[in-house]
Design a binder for these strands. Structure first.
Lengths: 352, 352
DNA sequence: GATATGTCGGCACACGTGTGCTTATGTCAA
DNA sequence: TTGACATAAGCACACGTGTGCCGACATATC
């Protein structure tokens, strides 16, 4: 008595199964088996061990567990930016699915910088993730690709030719084609397009959809009306400003990236133009606030939940079947985005 | 010749320093020292080892590194929701600071659910994070608190009386007092307040600021004009709707949470009221899009960067000084938010 | 040429957990 | 009573990395 709670632990040194074992006068292997509900253990012993673990404040050491290499406990998600609504939603959705599958998700943010990307992926591999869902930079390092080939991976949204892994993408061509067709059907003939570089698969496909819609209608795209810039708000602002200053003014603008949409909205607002009176606007993405704008923004809504579902499913399957030595043909799952028509698009005003 | 690249590795079994060692006919300890630039190694050997490591595709095993317990490599961030602009910004900023300090940040999302919170924190402890920055649930489990006490921690934004660790918060009282004073100075006398429960420190403080401003002006708060609800968009929508339906209608509404602001904006929009003509509006937070609204929203802007700075600084200091056995008095660092006046607040219309 | 000094690399162990093998104990059937 | 067998718990090793200690060897100094 009077010895208190047994002087449990020096700070910084946590309780181990050995501590529990010596506390209970048995071998640490017995404790291990008890805690993991293995066979060949009397239920009485299990009980005692679990109680002792609880009492001593035992917390398992993940590193020690993982060192043997057998268990697959972690997966990684690589994205350019958490502040972007789309990616933060993906993070949340994927994390949920991982949790349900008994996995923990590690988040890696690249800032769309190839070097950071390589470092982050290396860090994920050092943590021995069993697989990765990745939205890569436009121009990944060769090191990045080499590293990625070592583990199961699923490309999300952006698709790289050099990478042989599965891909879960949006049907960008169809999505943008529908958006452009919407504008054409409203009578617009001078439609500007502001999107991202063709070096990214999404940039390529979205522009293609835009042009395809014109082709089907037999309409010539607005001369000088296509601006391709990196996906950052400032560039969106600048690009929209340039497009608005064209000699032959656009009566509608279509934006092919959520970041560019934010900058673009600011440019349109500063130009003091009426929407959709002076110019119709189609944005990209579907953050909660698009419909709070005045006018509410017509936009290509991204199927976040379906993307996360498919990516998780693909990844888990690959992990389960042991990295698929079987060269599954690089599956590309395309999910169709939804054009949500709100108030920012209207019929062409026949002014002249 | 013709033996190819030496049949490097069976899938799923990665290259270890032992592999490098046997490849080079030396002891694994030599390899370890070479890779870590330790002393007692000739630079020639270092060179050879590093080249071999590169060639064989060696990736260090973090688990093996961490198992010895000496190194502090990880920290955790616990937040209720990544989709919230504020927390996604905090995630980004803190991750950057950790990276600069040579640490990796693990993200844990609680969904504001105490049970999930406890599980996530346990997972962080299993990963042996050296410290944690946490925005806890309103009512954390006792298990959560017990776990948190085992490691250095910094409370972010929300402050819990039961927890003795340092806290980095906003000066919520001052922030909301300034916002309310702004409205009072514009002549408003019927001001509604929609915020979060008083069980959260932020909810408490913000309401206090609101009331304090009234007191200083000698104005009686609007009867029935205070609504306290959980921080979710739906509740914000409902609460604002209720407030708008009061017998004595408010001429201004102040919202004390970013989530509630989103729901509230939707309610005001649906009510078809002119802002600030019929009702002035002050929101909370500062996502990129507040100034894209029509009218642009006056809001209490949160000092994200300063908060992240201070939290990181606090945490790193605690970690460095070995968990501070020295009972540092629970430091509370308060950072003043900024009232950003835009277009959604205007003078009271003297109608009656 | 012998000893002191310094450099380089190997041996062996530690970290916390899981597991195959072995031993000890008890139970039941022949 | 003995042997077959199930159950419980311990011993020893493995995982990948880092490090204290010691031996091997080269160079410098007397």
């Amino acid at each position: 008595m009077a010895d208190g709670p047994m002087q449990i632990r020096k700070l910084g040194h946590s309780v181990t199964i050995k501590d529990i074992a010596s506390h209970l006068n048995m071998a640490h292997s017995t404790v291990s088996r008890a805690l993991n509900d293995r066979s060949h253990i009397s239920s009485a012993t299990k009980q005692r061990v679990k109680e002792a673990a609880e009492k001593l404040g035992y917390v398992a050491n993940l590193s020690a567990r993982m060192i043997r290499g057998d268990a697959g406990l972690l997966v990684g998600l690589i994205i350019p930016d958490v502040q972007n609504d789309f990616y933060s939603s993906i993070s949340k959705e994927l994390a949920d699915r991982c949790r349900k599958a008994g996995l923990r998700m590690l988040l890696a943010i690249t800032d769309d910088d190839p070097e950071t990307e390589q470092n982050e992926i290396r860090a994920l591999l050092e943590a021995r993730v069993s697989g990765v869902v990745a939205t890569l930079t436009a121009t990944p390092t060769s090191g990045t690709l080499t590293l990625l080939e070592q583990i199961p991976s699923v490309q999300l949204v952006r698709r790289h030719a050099k990478l042989k892994s599965a891909a879960v993408c949006m049907a960008d061509v169809a999505g943008c084609q529908a958006a452009a067709e919407h504008l054409l059907a409203l009578g617009h003939r001078n439609i500007a397009y502001v999107g991202t570089s063709k070096t990214i698969s999404t940039g390529r496909d979205r522009l293609r959809g835009f042009l395809e819609a014109h082709k089907l209608r037999g309409v010539e795209p607005l001369a000088g009306g296509v601006e391709l810039v990196p996906p950052r708000q400032e560039y969106g602002y600048d690009a929209i400003a340039r497009v608005l200053a064209l000699k032959e003014k656009p009566t509608a603008i279509m934006i092919g990236s959520s970041e560019l949409t934010i900058g673009g909205l600011r440019a349109v607002r500063e130009a003091g133009l009426a929407v959709p009176g002076d110019v119709s606007l189609v944005g990209y993405g579907d953050p909660v606030w698009f419909d709070l704008l005045t006018p509410a923004l017509t936009a290509v809504a991204l199927p976040v939940s379906a993307l996360a579902d498919s990516a998780a499913q693909q990844l888990f399957r690959q992990i389960d079947q042991g990295q698929g030595d079987v060269p599954v043909k690089p599956l590309v799952h395309k999910i169709t985005p939804n054009l949500v028509v709100r108030e920012s698009t209207g019929p062409r005003k026949r002014r002249k």
